[in-house]
Measured scan of single mutants.
Amino acid sequence: DEVTIHLGDKTIRVDGLDKELLEILKELARRGADEEELRKEIERWER
């Protein structure tokens, strides 16, 4: 499953996201997290 996250004018595509992680990323994005913060969160989950 590829998920596309839209952040204002930026788009991040991620393969096979965990549903819980997806919810966390959506919440972070709502709070104004930037792409770098979201990537760090994704990397934390992948470990």
Score class of each variant (00 low, 15 high):
Asp1Phe: 09
Asp1Gly: 14
Asp1Ala: 10
Asp1Cys: 15
Glu2Asn: 11
Glu2Arg: 07
Val3Asn: 14
Val3Met: 13
Val3Pro: 12
Val3Thr: 14
Val3Trp: 07
Val3Phe: 13
Val3Ser: 13
Thr4Arg: 09
Thr4Ala: 10
Thr4Asp: 12
Ile5His: 03
Ile5Trp: 00
Ile5Tyr: 00
Ile5Met: 02
Ile5Asn: 04
Ile5Leu: 03
Ile5Ala: 05
Ile5Thr: 05
His6Lys: 14
Leu7Arg: 02
Leu7Gln: 06
Leu7His: 06
Leu7Ile: 14
Leu7Glu: 03
Gly8Phe: 02
Gly8Trp: 01
Gly8Lys: 09
Gly8Arg: 04
Gly8Ser: 13
Asp9Val: 05
Asp9Trp: 00
Asp9Met: 02
Asp9Ile: 04
Asp9Pro: 06
Lys10Val: 13
Lys10Glu: 07
Lys10Ala: 13
Lys10Met: 14
Thr11Phe: 02
Thr11His: 11
Thr11Gly: 15
Thr11Leu: 11
Thr11Ile: 14
Thr11Met: 04
Ile12Thr: 03
Ile12Ser: 02
Ile12Trp: 00
Ile12Met: 06
Ile12Gln: 02
Ile12Val: 06
Arg13Trp: 12
Arg13Asn: 14
Arg13Ala: 10
Arg13Pro: 08
Val14Met: 09
Val14Lys: 05
Val14Ala: 09
Val14Ile: 14
Val14Gln: 05
Asp15Glu: 14
Asp15Thr: 10
Asp15Phe: 00
Gly16Met: 11
Gly16Gln: 14
Gly16Leu: 13
Gly16Tyr: 11
Gly16Thr: 11
Gly16Glu: 09
Leu17Gly: 05
Leu17Glu: 03
Leu17Trp: 10
Leu17Arg: 11
Leu17Ala: 09
Leu17His: 07
Asp18Trp: 06
Asp18Gln: 15
Asp18Glu: 10
Asp18Phe: 06
Asp18His: 14
Lys19Val: 10
Lys19Met: 09
Lys19Leu: 13
Glu20Gln: 14
Glu20Ile: 11
Glu20Leu: 13
Glu20Asp: 12
Glu20His: 13
Leu21Glu: 01
Leu21His: 02
Leu21Thr: 01
Leu21Ser: 01
Leu22Trp: 08
Leu22Ala: 06
Leu22Phe: 08
Leu22Tyr: 08
Glu23Pro: 01
Glu23Met: 07
Glu23His: 09
Glu23Ala: 11
Ile24Glu: 02
Ile24Tyr: 10
Ile24Val: 11
Ile24Gly: 01
Ile24Trp: 13
Ile24Phe: 07
Ile24Gln: 05
Leu25Cys: 02
Leu25Trp: 00
Leu25Arg: 00
Leu25Gly: 00
Leu25Ser: 00
Leu25Tyr: 01
Leu25Phe: 01
Lys26Val: 10
Lys26Glu: 09
Lys26Gly: 05
Glu27Ser: 07
Glu27Gly: 07
Leu28Arg: 03
Leu28Thr: 01
Leu28Val: 02
Leu28Pro: 00
Ala29Lys: 06
Ala29Tyr: 05
Ala29Glu: 08
Ala29Arg: 08
Ala29Gly: 06
Ala29Cys: 08
Arg30Ala: 15
Arg30Ser: 13
Arg30His: 09
Arg30Lys: 15
Arg30Ile: 07
Arg31Glu: 07
Arg31Ser: 14
Arg31Lys: 15
Gly32Tyr: 01
Gly32Val: 01
Ala33Glu: 02
Ala33Lys: 03
Ala33Gly: 07
Ala33Met: 06
Asp34Asn: 15
Asp34Arg: 09
Asp34Lys: 14
Glu35Thr: 06
Glu35Met: 11
Glu35Trp: 13
Glu35Phe: 12
Glu35Gly: 05
Glu36Arg: 09
Glu36Val: 11
Glu36Trp: 08
Glu36His: 13
Glu36Ser: 11
Glu36Tyr: 10
Glu36Leu: 09
Glu36Met: 12
Glu37Thr: 15
Glu37Gly: 04
Glu37Ala: 14
Leu38Ile: 15
Leu38Asp: 00
Leu38Gln: 01
Leu38His: 00
Leu38Trp: 05
Leu38Asn: 00
Leu38Phe: 10
Leu38Gly: 00
Arg39Gly: 02
Arg39Cys: 05
Arg39Gln: 07
Arg39Ala: 06
Lys40His: 05
Lys40Pro: 00
Lys40Arg: 13
Lys40Met: 07
Lys40Glu: 07
Lys40Cys: 03
Lys40Thr: 07
Lys40Gly: 06
Glu41Ser: 05
Glu41Asp: 00
Glu41Lys: 03
Glu41Asn: 04
Ile42Phe: 03
Ile42Pro: 00
Ile42Asn: 01
Ile42Tyr: 04
Ile42Gly: 01
Ile42Lys: 05
Glu43Lys: 03
Glu43Met: 03
Glu43Gly: 04
Glu43Val: 03
Glu43Thr: 02
Glu43Arg: 02
Glu43Cys: 02
Glu43Ala: 02
Arg44Lys: 13
Arg44Gln: 14
Arg44Val: 03
Arg44Phe: 10
Arg44Glu: 14
Trp45Ala: 07
Trp45Phe: 09
Trp45Gly: 03
Trp45Met: 07
Trp45Cys: 04
Glu46Cys: 06
Glu46Gly: 09
Arg47Asp: 15
Arg47Gln: 15
Arg47Tyr: 04
Arg47Ile: 12
Arg47Cys: 15
